[in-house]
Write a protein that binds this DNA or RNA. Structure first.
Lengths: 281, 281
DNA sequence: AGTTGTAGCGGTACGCTGTACGACGTGGCA
DNA sequence: TGCCACGTCGTACAGCGTACCGCTACAACT
């Protein structure tokens, strides 16, 4: 009798357990969905930044662009670390907390800064863009690279692709550059993204690349030898064993190639050629 | 007489002024050179991180890799902002300042983290890399993308291309992948950099891209209308005027294309094709 | 014209950060 | 055995983002 009761209890417990597990997975799924929705909500909140125009009646001392421009100037001069709310306010001759009337938090300020820089990427005269889509993409890509060269700190800001007026205009202009490409919208968007990705990747690398100069090669070679001793560096090993310039030769090749100014356009054109060839099939 | 004296004085002053100016430009030049050298010194100091092996005799509680692994786990779980020296120390069950015996400052810790992640990019078995250089590059590129998908916060760390063992191994492997490419070292390095740039650019974009989901389209359209009203958005304007899906259609195209899993390899292959075609001429 | 609500401004304070400094105990060598 | 330097870590400080809240002066209404 007691056994039976115990058995029943066990079965009941198992059932409850299974039920609990099911509930658990349901909760997990809901949580995941909620997170996804939250992400979207956050990102769309970013659009809100651009939609809400200074809602007050009274005239404010500054415009948001004033903040953005001052921030860009400050970062250009002293680096991204120098940009703090206090410092920017000081630069503008205002109290720190005043900035929070133009911007909800520092991240929003950075979004402003990002869009300000995107303004420099824009082609001033759309009509001047070449008809040929590949040439037009080279023009836009080069402008982008130039802007990122002026403001290499852009990558330190960790901005997601934004919805600011200038960012949208950049997309618009890039699509405009593709007007001579006979393909449907999805293909064009694919090309827009791909080219933007290459360009940004180039700029990201260029930002961190070493300019020409002479490192203490002894340390370098010593380090390379230590690495090779650990094994698993076939190319390095061959270079050390062979007589073709050794490790220093490889280093030089990287520095030289990294500093080659024609590299950007050369590879961009290679990419565009590859895209065109693929689209032609 | 007094006039003559005054004239003389003026001439002398001018001469001195010119001399001062010359000195000034010299000083500027020297300062620029010093800055360049300083940059190099700083970057080479980074190699020092890898060269200096725990110099002490006594056995330390942790290894640098312990720190790196704990940091990666922490950031994976709670995001890059969660990584502070205090928090990591707590995670390791150590005092905060203890970490500073493994690492000179937080930046060095991040370099360690970066190289740890680069370890995931490495191809486990070099011999398994396809002979064909284009196929081999696709393998390496895909591995890189996968690692960056697992750790999209890598771009928040603002790391320059590093000299850590795994980073060097990645370069080595990539050059190894190009062994079937008949070209001299400079060309190969160009290809290595270009492909790495595209791959990183793709990952950088993917990190910030919106996953599939439904935004509040009304706000979006309203925003687009506001922008078009400002002028200078020909494509957007045409989309709003035309009947081909409108702004929502464009938005969808971006979201759809951004979420297209085949996009990475497709465009990487296009790039490689373009490179091969160019090298063949 | 006078009044008033509030938009714009900013001082203070809190909890967090990275890290300089110095104290402490213990392990390894002489 | 004695020593000392190595690994460990508590404390302190300057600077960060920003929540909270009081103040001032202007735009709008009576």
């Amino acid at each position: 009798m007691a056994d039976k009761l115990a058995e029943k209890a066990v079965r009941k417990a198992e059932k409850l357990h299974a039920k609990a597990e099911k509930l658990h997975t349901t909760v997990d799924k809901l949580a995941a969905k909620a997170e996804r929705l939250q992400e979207w909500a956050d990102r769309l909140e970013a659009i809100e930044l651009w939609r809400r125009e200074s809602p007050g009646r009274r005239q404010a001392r500054f415009t948001r662009q004033d903040l953005a421009r001052a921030a860009v100037a400050l970062i250009d001069a002293e680096g991204a670390d120098a940009l703090s709310m206090r410092r920017l306010a000081q630069e503008l001759g205002a109290g720190t907390m005043t900035l929070y009337h133009y911007v909800r938090n520092k991240d929003e300020l950075l979004v402003l800064v990002g869009d300000e820089v995107m303004g420099e990427v824009l082609v001033p005269d759309l009509a001047a863009l070449p008809e040929d889509w590949m040439e037009a993409m080279v023009v836009i890509g080069t402008r982008t690279r130039d802007a990122m060269r002026r403001h290499p700190w852009m990558f330190e800001l960790n901005l997601d692709p934004g919805f600011g007026p200038n960012s949208v205009r950049h997309i618009d202009q890039t699509l405009h550059a593709l007007r001579s490409l006979d393909a449907d919208l999805d293909v064009k968007v694919d090309v827009v993204l791909a080219v933007d990705e290459y360009v940004m990747g180039y700029c990201l690398h260029e930002r961190g690349a070493l300019g020409p100069g002479q490192p203490p090669m002894d340390d370098l070679v010593a380090y390379a030898e230590e690495l090779v001793a650990a094994g698993g560096y076939p190319t390095l090993e061959a270079l050390l064993a062979g007589d073709g310039g050794g490790v220093v030769g490889l280093w030089d090749a990287f520095v030289r190639t990294g500093a080659d100014d024609a590299r950007f356009e050369r590879n961009l054109r290679r990419f565009l050629r590859g895209i065109a060839a693929d689209l032609a099939t």
